[in-house]
Design a protein around this nucleic acid. Structure first.
Lengths: 143, 143
DNA sequence: TATTGTTATACTCTATAACTATA
DNA sequence: TATAGTTATAGAGTATAACAATA
């Protein structure tokens, strides 16, 4: 068994790798999205709009304030990519992709997946090894 | 061999896991650092100051503009954690931790490593499996 | 009275451009 | 002329607080 200092050093190194990978993924995402003519935050929103969604739910998913969603929705509407639909509860507005938005989302989604580091750099076997480790890393924390 | 759609779906899922893990790591870092009374960006800078370092080098390491380092250095000096030392090239200033800064850095570094997801959630064997996969993910891109 | 979304505003982080001093 | 760090300022991104409509 490795000593305390060795374990801590390895912990630091792995953490740094994870951070670097996430940063690289962010850069890749921006580069992948750029040809679609969308700012990153609009692209993220579009990818979440699999189906019409209450604006408040989007705020939860994007981990941002609801007031920020108002701005995103305005920009998506300006571009003709989404529209606000009335919800059953009349306080709620559903944000839904237009046909143009759905088409764009489809192309965007494939491009992002194809350019992902995990697909470009790892073999199928390696990905199968990686997946359970990442899932374990992300288990809900019960400290 | 899996079909195209399956591969893309797996790519999306793994990418999302990596993003979620990085976000969790960011939250953990902030929580770990909070008791030390430091904003996150100052903590990151202190952790990089293993030895006295030209301010420009810090800008490279933190991937930010040199003008931003000026502000960080000011705040570290205000707190008595670092000081500017003259370099051999008299245009260069070396940022160096004070005794107080070095002591704080030591505690900070251990706390961050101990609280890291990779240490809390994975066994030694799992970490050994994960490391080479992460390294491969991060190889310099030569597209 | 509580909740959804909107509006107007303010704040945080970081970069840009012009500057000083050295090289 | 080029480089290291500084200064003042500006911009992007996001949150806060007060508000209107609805529950």
């Amino acid at each position: 068994m490795a000593g305390r200092e060795e374990r801590l050093a390895e912990s630091r190194r792995l953490s740094q790798l994870l951070i670097d990978i996430a940063n690289q993924a962010k850069v890749d995402f921006a580069e992948t999205v750029a040809p679609f003519g969308l700012p990153v935050h609009l692209a993220r929103a579009i990818l979440m709009l699999d189906s019409p969604s209450p604006m408040g739910d989007l705020a939860d998913q994007l981990a941002c304030d609801p007031s920020y969603i108002t701005g995103l929705a305005d920009k998506l509407e300006d571009r003709g990519l989404a529209e606000r639909l009335p919800g059953e509860d009349r306080r709620v507005k559903l944000l839904a992709l237009t046909q143009a938005g759905a088409t764009l989302r489809s192309g965007l989604s494939d491009a992002v997946a194809e350019n992902a580091l995990v697909l470009r750099r790892l073999t199928e076997t390696e990905r199968a090894t990686l997946a359970p480790l990442l899932e374990k890393l992300l288990d809900i924390d019960t400290r």
